[in-house]
Computed example of a mutant assay.
Amino acid sequence: MVLRKTYKILVTLMLALAWLGSPAQDIHFSQFYEAPLLRNPSLAGIFTGDIRAQLVYRDQWNSFTNAFRSGSFNAEYKLPVGLGDDFITAGFQMLFDRAGTAALTTTQLLPAINYHKSLSSERSMYLSVGFMGGWVQKRIDRSKITTDNQFVGGAFNPALNDGESFANANYSYLDGSVGASFNTGFGKDNKNVLFFGAAYHHLNRPTNSFYRSEAAALNPKWVFSGGVKLNVNDQAFFNIQADHSQQGGATETIGGAMYAYKFGDPEDPDYVLHLGAFLRFKDALIPAIKIDYQPFSIGLSYDVNVSQLRTASQGRGGFELSVSYIGFLNRDNSSKYRIICPRF
């Protein structure tokens, strides 16, 4: 039992180090397109509707070791500014992550604001600038940590002090991100849509250490994002999305496409089925499926590990579930009645 437990701890540590890439790399989701504010705060409000709420839950490597459980929730409210075509979006991003036997837990509460400046009076074309910032807490269950100090003559004694010098098993800090994006319609009747943008996260470089060491400042992260919706015909379209991020010495590139088919009236379909796959380079192949049943959507994906860790992980990666709601409000200035508005 001791050897089995030790093996699980070692596998967890090995997978965690590989997943993080560096001690200060951020949490990521395979359904990154369902967590837009984590990509770039200027992506808030770039959807067809007045309000949007999205939930993503990730369970990674828990089939054989106690590794990662992560949850993201964001909500956005979009409304026009004055009598022109400009819009503003207020949003909120929440994140929860628990990792490893010691239950290293991260909680984030981050409000966001995004301004969409119209660049054309003839079609939807917007430059958006967003900011997100708020409170982050990290904590650990110290009772589940074992160190060399607690082993005497090869026997573990939990009554002994663990020898670690940090005073508190939790700490908090403020964090902030900024971003800009471009969003436009194009093609016949402007039915195709694209966006691209860049974001700079952890702009204040908060200290990321239980020892509160200034040398452990959180590395800033650049994220470059893009997406395009291409109509095949009135009944079908492709949704292509990609992100590239760099944080410290770690980089990550993920991208892919989903083919969507509308069942029923193309203007008001009964439901829309999306099928596709994404690739996190040098890490995982991610098949995905999504069903829209307005105003709700449900998505499922699974990471198939293709990295050098596939032997330890047995090819198993992360399962993700997403649920989203996009709707229009019953108001005179709803974007439902606007020909020109930020959308995707």
Rank of each mutant, 00 (worst) to 15 (best):
residue 1 M to R: 06
residue 122 E to M: 03
residue 260 A to M: 07
residue 92 F to H: 05
residue 190 N to W: 08
residue 298 I to L: 11
residue 305 N to Y: 02
residue 9 I to A: 14
residue 180 A to L: 11
residue 255 G to A: 08
residue 229 K to N: 14
residue 65 T to G: 06
residue 33 Y to K: 03
residue 207 T to D: 10
residue 105 T to P: 12
residue 3 L to E: 14
residue 123 R to G: 05
residue 270 D to M: 15
residue 246 Q to T: 07
residue 28 H to S: 15
residue 313 S to K: 04
residue 189 D to N: 14
residue 204 N to I: 13
residue 116 H to Q: 01
residue 23 P to A: 11
residue 59 D to Y: 08
residue 302 Y to R: 05
residue 135 W to I: 07
residue 147 T to P: 07
residue 319 F to V: 04
residue 212 R to Y: 09
residue 118 S to W: 06
residue 316 R to Q: 13
residue 286 I to G: 06
residue 76 E to D: 05
residue 285 L to G: 12
residue 328 F to Q: 03
residue 90 A to H: 08
residue 166 F to I: 15
residue 283 D to I: 07
residue 48 T to A: 15
residue 86 D to R: 11
residue 33 Y to I: 06
residue 25 Q to T: 15
residue 285 L to F: 15
residue 275 L to D: 03
residue 238 F to K: 01
residue 77 Y to D: 09
residue 160 L to N: 07
residue 251 T to I: 11
residue 102 A to R: 09
residue 311 T to S: 10
residue 133 G to M: 10
residue 160 L to W: 02
residue 59 D to W: 02
residue 271 Y to S: 07
residue 309 L to F: 03
residue 218 L to A: 10
residue 5 K to E: 12
residue 294 Q to S: 10
residue 333 N to I: 10
residue 337 Y to G: 15
residue 73 F to V: 10
residue 22 S to W: 04
residue 193 V to W: 09
residue 281 F to R: 13
residue 126 Y to E: 04
residue 32 F to E: 13
residue 343 R to G: 00
residue 327 G to H: 07
residue 216 A to T: 00
residue 331 R to D: 09
residue 174 L to W: 08
residue 190 N to I: 03
residue 318 G to V: 00
residue 177 S to N: 00
residue 163 G to T: 11
residue 284 A to I: 03
residue 239 N to W: 03
residue 302 Y to K: 06
residue 33 Y to V: 07
residue 266 P to C: 14
residue 68 F to P: 06
residue 60 Q to W: 10
residue 63 S to G: 09
residue 310 R to I: 00
residue 204 N to R: 10
residue 44 A to I: 02
residue 144 K to E: 13
residue 1 M to H: 12
residue 251 T to Q: 02
residue 77 Y to Q: 02
